[in-house]
């Protein structure tokens, strides 16, 4: 730009930015109430503006639960090996989209280049780690019981059904995959609610899901304030479990109280700082377990 010459207010090429929508039943949809929220950036560029994100309402949550319920039976009845392959594919897609994800982490979450690269690597590796569990957790957690009578007696874990996930509000990508993977790998379907710090990453993750052969309705992703959805999720009679990350003591109490209506399985998780989320102790077989039921089957043996 030559000195003294004024910069043109019209750029040479106008970008075509992505509309950030909700992801319900395998489709990107606008929020039912037509509301959006401004998603800010910690950086000064573009006046701190990154994108407008969809502001999910109770109605969007209800649609997502319906989609998740429909998807549950077929997903749970897929072979464990097949579910495992689909989670591996999700890991592949995260790694493949590394450049876009890193850029998103830098602009929306204000990560350094190094931090963004690490976040994406851990997210891919974590999906890879959980993918392998899909056809193994059952052998580790269940098995044959040698009862004192001539019977075959086996206890196997089964998925609960529809699980409402309130993902981390601190770890934009690793926190998200760490919340979703252990829920869906066993055959549960999920309605995931994502609030900050960088909800555009939730849309990036929805795009990963969309190209990973995850059947429609297995993972549904909503963005917006958690407090709008939490009471409805807790009281919804067609939700079987809730995974709640972080939050206040009051929120946890309200959730546990309202969820007694249909005895939802509620599990409260910590939500540490972004760096701590990347540690190996934030992935565990015992994060799969809270969203399982145990079925014990008897059958006589004899000539």
């Amino acid at each position: 730009m030559a000195a003294g010459k004024k910069r043109s207010p019209v750029p040479e090429r106008l970008p075509v930015p992505r509309t950030c929508k909700l992801y319900i039943k395998g489709a990107f949809v606008r929020p039912a109430a037509g509301r959006t929220l401004q998603c800010g950036s910690s950086r000064k560029e573009r006046g701190g503006f990154v994108a407008r994100i969809a502001h999910a309402s109770r109605k969007d949550f209800a649609s997502a639960v319906t989609a998740a319920r429909q998807a549950f039976g077929p997903w749970a009845h897929r072979s464990a090996f097949n579910r495992s392959q689909i989670l591996f594919r999700m890991a592949e897609m995260v790694d493949h989209r590394r450049a876009a994800l890193e850029a998103g982490l830098r602009t929306a979450a204000g990560l350094t280049a190094k931090g963004a690269a690490e976040e994406v690597s851990v997210a891919a590796d974590r999906l890879f780690w959980y993918a392998g569990w899909a056809d193994k957790y059952s052998q580790v957690l269940g098995g044959a019981n040698p009862v004192a009578a001539p019977f075959l007696n086996i206890t196997i874990p089964e998925p609960l059904g529809v699980v409402s996930v309130f993902a981390s509000t601190r770890s934009p990508l690793v926190g998200l995959v760490s919340a979703v993977a252990p829920v869906i790998l066993s055959g549960n379907t999920a309605v995931v609610m994502v609030e900050g710090p960088a909800p555009t990453l939730a849309v990036d993750f929805a795009e990963v899901v969309a190209v990973s052969d995850v059947p429609a309705g297995v993972v549904n992703i909503l963005t917006g304030p958690r407090e709008d959805i939490l009471p409805h999720a807790a009281a919804h009679m067609d939700v079987d479990g809730v995974a709640f990350f972080g939050g206040t003591v009051e929120e946890a109490k309200a959730l546990e109280e309202a969820s007694a209506g249909n005895l939802k399985r509620v599990h409260l998780f910590d939500d540490p700082e972004m760096g701590a989320w990347r540690e190996d102790d934030m992935q565990s077989l015992y994060w799969i377990q809270p969203f399982l039921e145990w079925k014990t089957t008897w059958h006589p043996k004899g000539w």
């Binding site: 019981n145 009862v147 009578a149 014990t296 059958h299």
Partner: peptide
């Protein structure tokens, strides 16, 4: 939680 195939009302200390 408990399914009895061709039997009924079976219990055992190690059967959940």
């Amino acid at each position: 939680g408990v399914v009895w195939g061709n039997t009924v009302d079976r219990f055992d200390p190690l059967s959940p």
